[in-house]
């Protein structure tokens, strides 16, 4: 009986936790001073994302499942966005991959490559605005590097 109840609770917890990886950008929908874009796989298929703007995204376009972009343009909203992003990163088990700090522009990349789909998150701040870009898909870091080389 104890084993049955334990398994039951475990299954319930797993199902709830699985749903915990919800959309990050959805939290900012309709919020003032935040802009967000969420584009799904179906919508991405409608976009001719191939070799435009002088960049080669052919290796990534077919592997993208979803794109989320959130921008904050004020100091207060930037702080909120940063803290919310850090909490989301911790809740969803993303790992820090790289930090770049150049000429006052800071950017950090977090990844989760052991999930399906993979998650790549970029948190950037250029002093005026803060942006969060989240890419979901089956691409690899090498694919992402090859966009601009």
């Amino acid at each position: 009986m104890k084993k049955f109840i334990s398994i039951l609770l475990l299954l319930a917890t797993v199902s709830i936790v699985a749903n915990a990886q919800q959309s990050f950008a959805k939290q900012f929908k309709g919020q003032p001073d935040f802009t967000f874009v969420t584009i799904s796989k179906a919508a991405l298929r409608m976009l001719p994302l191939k070799d435009k703007m002088g960049v080669n995204i052919g290796s990534v376009a077919d592997k993208l499942d979803k794109v989320e972009i959130v921008n904050a343009t004020t100091d207060e909203t930037s702080e909120i966005l940063t803290k919310t992003c850090e909490r989301w990163i911790e809740d969803n088990g993303l790992e820090s991959f790289i930090d770049v700090d150049e000429e006052g522009q800071q950017a950090s990349i977090f990844t989760k490559t052991d999930s399906e789909p993979k998650v790549f998150l970029l948190l950037g701040n250029d002093g005026d605005t803060t942006a969060v870009i989240i890419l979901y898909g089956t691409m690899t870091l090498e694919d992402m590097q090859s966009i601009i080389h």
Partner: peptide, 20 residues
């Protein structure tokens, strides 16, 4: 939206390459 997606990918790649 198309441009935003492209810019997001370009930004990601740029930061990644800088870091690497």
């Amino acid at each position: 939206d198309e441009e935003k997606v492209l810019m997001a990918l370009v930004t990601f790649s740029t930061v990644l390459n800088k870091g690497v």
